[in-house]
């Protein structure tokens, strides 16, 4: 018997409803990527990803697409951390996230942590395309291994484009089999949690926030474009979340 992984695809479209709120004409997802609409807040629609299965496991292919149309506001969170696990199918798992935010639209993409459990092998890509006047808050947190466990293999690429121009393109590869030095002093230096927070606001083009340190292993930096990145490594998920929350508060 050939074991093949799970294919899962979820899609969200957020559209201005003409009354100051946001409608969700498309909210499709099932299995590991089930979606639930939760209580709206102001003009913002809220969606929760509630995985009804574990994974991604080796061989799985997940993809998640969200499109926020002009004038709409969407907030996406997840009910729990995503745990990459080893699977019976051959090969690694793949998880692709595509975010499209139109001019004058806003997306808050704030999922819980991605945990690379021992023996897992996952390649995750997140690609956000924004219109010139779009706003974005995007958080990504990776935890290498469950408590006290050796990490799995995790490669994560994050690409953010504003008005057709790439403002951020970063890939981090870690765990067994990753290119050498990933746990050394240039990359993670033994830290087991790593996170990025990207904030894009049109006003940053004229008035970018100044670079600043947030403790010894985190920095808030203006990118070449209307964008700010907070990059942090931390001993654990809790302290990482505190750093990223602190950064978001600083940005106001």
């Amino acid at each position: 018997m050939t074991v093949t992984g799970v294919r899962a695809h979820a899609r969200i479209v957020a559209r201005a409803d003409g009354r100051g709120g946001t409608a969700l004409p498309v909210l499709d997802g099932d299995g590991p990527l089930a979606l639930r609409r939760t209580r709206a807040s102001g003009g913002e629609a809220r969606v929760m990803v509630v995985g009804a299965m574990s994974g991604p496991l080796g061989g799985d292919r997940f993809s998640l697409e969200a499109r926020v149309e002009e004038g709409a506001r969407l907030h996406v969170g997840s009910a729990a951390a995503t745990i990459a696990l080893p699977g019976q199918a051959k090969g690694g798992a793949r998880y692709d996230v595509r975010l499209d935010v139109a001019d004058d639209a806003e997306l808050h993409w704030l999922p819980e942590q991605l945990i690379a459990a021992g023996g897992s092998d996952l390649y995750v890509t997140t690609r956000a395309e924004l219109g010139a006047g779009a706003r974005l808050v995007l958080r990504e947190e990776q935890v290498l291994g469950r408590f006290g466990e050796e990490p799995g293999r995790l490669t994560s690429r994050l690409t953010v484009r504003v008005a057709g121009r790439t403002v951020l393109d970063q890939e981090l590869s870690c765990g067994p089999g990753a290119p050498g030095g990933w746990d050394g002093p240039a990359v993670l230096a033994g830290h087991r949690s790593v996170g990025q927070l990207v904030v894009i606001r049109p006003e940053f083009a004229e008035q970018p926030p100044a670079a600043r340190m947030l403790g010894e292993c985190a920095a808030l930096v203006p990118l070449a474009g209307p964008a700010v990145l907070v990059s942090a490594v931390s001993p654990d998920a809790l302290s990482l979340r505190r750093l990223l929350d602190q950064a978001l508060t600083l940005l106001g």
Binding site: T159, Q170, E171, V187, V194, M213, A219, S231, A232, V233
Partner: peptide
């Protein structure tokens, strides 16, 4: 696009 978070953070420090 391979990156080392501590290279970037360390450079700002």
């Amino acid at each position: 696009a391979a990156s080392g978070p501590l290279l970037e953070v360390g450079a700002e420090w």
